[in-house]
Computed example of a mutant assay.
Amino acid sequence: MQKDIYKSDYYYDLPEDLIAKYPVKNRTSSKLLHLDGGDIHIDEFISIQDELKDDDVLIINETKVIPARLKLKKQTGGSVELLVLDKINKNVGNCLTKGLNKKIKEQTLYSENFPVKISIINVYEDSVEIKFNQAIDSLCDAIGHIPIPPYLNRSDEELDRDRYQSVFANDKHKNSVAAPTASLHFDNKLMEQLEAKLTICKINLDIGLGTFKPLKDEPITNKSKLHKEDFYISESSATVLNDAISANKRLVALGTTTLRALESAYDVNVKKIRSGPQSTEIFIHEGYKFNVVDSLITNFHLPESSLLMLVSAFAGKENIFNAYKYAIKNKMRFFSYGDAMIIKKCHSKS
């Protein structure tokens, strides 16, 4: 019987100065830590060109971050912040709120340019369902802020509109409230070079609360789930992936969101990736059996987070924590705007 897992099992101490508050000047100028079992070394990120081989399939998440953070004022002058997590329809969305009086069902808030009327439909444990008096997409485009992570301890700036977005973000998939941050290291030139060398397969997962919500102080079991996130794999992408699996090619996931979508879409009965619109609540932690992904490109993750548990399950917890210690010792940059790792799946127990 598997022992209970607690988030405290995944704590590590990180010096404040290693949190990357801003991106490096050029996307590909980051560092890349290579982790293969117990073997660790650091290179320039551009070395990914040599790491990825002709027969590999690189799977990317095309999602686009929306300027989903709305900074508003009450009539009394108090501040209200709404983060639109997902759109239920054109005018209704689930939101995280700060400073909002949830008891007042109908209220008018104010941006710098115009009033915003809202109706509170439902109040949930994690979010508030709100109807706006205008289309959410138009509202976010007009006054929204890029929802950079709170641990950066700064307001969003103009550079974040470009740099907290991958170069291959697709307007058709403009539904995420956080970036697939491993993607931020790739520029157009590198993508062109990789496209000429190997197969690149595109999927989409809308990043929401499931990716970044802090874990509760409770045991984590095989029944534990994360907040639901929607994803889509086209029929053509599923064909590429299934052909690659049949041919025993290496599948390299760019980012934990990509990995979660692929593992969730895999049908263990027919041993194939399912196509079409899908959703996942999968919580990958110690003991999980990976069926699809062989290698993972990812950034460094927060202590006690579900994503740190995911990479620990993938590479082995001891290997990951040794790699993190090595990265800290070598002054690598952490989190969303930080450096990256490429990890090979560990076949031994964590």
Rank of each mutant, 00 (worst) to 15 (best):
K3C: 10
Y11W: 07
D13L: 09
D13N: 12
I19T: 03
A20N: 05
K21A: 02
V24N: 07
N26K: 14
N26Q: 15
L35D: 12
G37H: 05
H41D: 12
E44F: 09
I46Q: 11
E51N: 09
K53Y: 01
D54F: 14
V57E: 01
I60F: 14
I60D: 04
P67K: 06
L72F: 01
T76W: 03
E81D: 02
L83Y: 04
V92T: 11
N94W: 00
E106S: 06
Q107I: 04
K117D: 14
I121H: 15
I121L: 15
V123Y: 13
Y124N: 15
Y124E: 15
S127H: 07
E129R: 11
I130Q: 03
D141R: 04
I143E: 08
P147K: 04
I148N: 08
N153Q: 13
E157G: 06
R163S: 02
Q165P: 02
F168Y: 15
A169W: 09
N175Y: 12
A178D: 04
S183L: 06
H185L: 10
L190T: 10
E195S: 13
K202F: 12
N204F: 15
L205I: 15
L209M: 11
K216I: 03
P219G: 06
K225P: 11
A238I: 01
V240F: 08
N242C: 07
K249W: 03
K249E: 03
G255F: 02
T256S: 03
S264P: 04
A265G: 06
Y266H: 12
Y266L: 02
D267E: 15
V268I: 10
V268S: 15
V270H: 12
Q278G: 05
Q278R: 08
T280M: 03
E286I: 01
V292K: 05
H301P: 12
L302D: 14
L302A: 14
P303V: 10
P303L: 09
V311Q: 07
S312N: 08
A315M: 05
A315I: 00
E318C: 00
F321Q: 13
N322L: 02
K325Y: 06
N330T: 03
F334W: 06
A340P: 06
I343P: 04
I343C: 11
K344V: 10
C346V: 00
C346S: 13
